[in-house]
C-alpha cells in the first residue's frame, strides 16, 4: 500500500501553483465575491458594513497564509468569511453582555450568531456528501424537486435512488448533530 500524494503537474501558474491545474486571480475573486459576501453579512447577519468588510479582510489574511493549499477558492473565501462574521458577532454579544441590560422588550434578541453557525454547519454537512450526491440532495431538499428526478439522475432504479437518498440524509443528519 502506498500513500501517493504529490505526483502533481507543475504547469505555469500565477496565484496557486501548488497543484498546477488552475490559476486564480485572488484580487478579482475578492472583489467579485466580496461584494456579495459583505452584503450578506450586513443584510442577513446584522453586521455593520464596516464589520463585514473587516471580516472579509481577515478572510483575505487566511488566504495569504494558506493560498498554495487552497483547491476551491470560492468555497474557501466564503467559509472563512462566514466564520469571521461569527467571530465578530460573538465579540459584539460579549461586549453587550458586559454592558447594563436594557429594559425588557426594548432590545430584540439577537440570533445572528446562531444563524451564522447554522449556515456553516449546513455547508459542512453538504460538503461531506460526494459532489454527485450533493447535487442530487440539493435538487431534492433545497430546490424542491421530487425524488423520482433524483432517481433518474442516479441512472438507477427508484429503489436504488431511494436507498442512496436515505444514506445521504443519514450523512447530513450525523453531520448536523
Amino acid at each position: 500500500m502506498e500513500q501517493d500524494r504529490s505526483d502533481l503537474p507543475s504547469g505555469s501558474v500565477r496565484s496557486a501553483p501548488a497543484f498546477g491545474a488552475r490559476s486564480w486571480d485572488w484580487d478579482d475573486l475578492y472583489a467579485r465575491l466580496g461584494r456579495n459576501l459583505i452584503s450578506l453579512g450586513h443584510r442577513r447577519y446584522g453586521l455593520t458594513r464596516e464589520d463585514a468588510e473587516e471580516a472579509l479582510q481577515r478572510a483575505a489574511t487566511a488566504i495569504v497564509l494558506s493560498a498554495p493549499c487552497v483547491r476551491s477558492p470560492e468555497a474557501y473565501l466564503t467559509a472563512v468569511f462566514l466564520r469571521e462574521c461569527g467571530a465578530v458577532r460573538k465579540k459584539r454579544q460579549e461586549t453587550q453582555w458586559r454592558e447594563p441590560a436594557l429594559g425588557e422588550g426594548f432590545d430584540p434578541a439577537d440570533d445572528s450568531c446562531e444563524r451564522i453557525e447554522v449556515v456553516c454547519r449546513f455547508r459542512k454537512a453538504f460538503s461531506l456528501l460526494s459532489p454527485f450526491c450533493r447535487s442530487v440532495m440539493r435538487s431534492c431538499l433545497l430546490d424542491g424537486n421530487p425524488r423520482a428526478v433524483a432517481a433518474a439522475a442516479l441512472q438507477g432504479s427508484e429503489k436504488t435512488g431511494y436507498k442512496r437518498y436515505r444514506k445521504c440524509l443519514r450523512v447530513l443528519a450525523n453531520a448536523l448533530g
Binding site: R44, V119, R123
Partner: peptide, 23 residues
C-alpha cells in the same frame, strides 16, 4: 440560509478593494 448564499444580490454596492497583502 443555504439558499441565501446564492440568492442574495449585492445591489449597487461597490466592489471592495483587495488588501495590499492579497495583491
Amino acid at each position: 440560509h443555504i439558499l441565501d448564499l446564492e440568492a442574495l444580490g449585492a445591489g449597487d454596492a461597490p466592489a471592495p478593494a483587495p488588501p495590499a497583502s492579497l495583491s
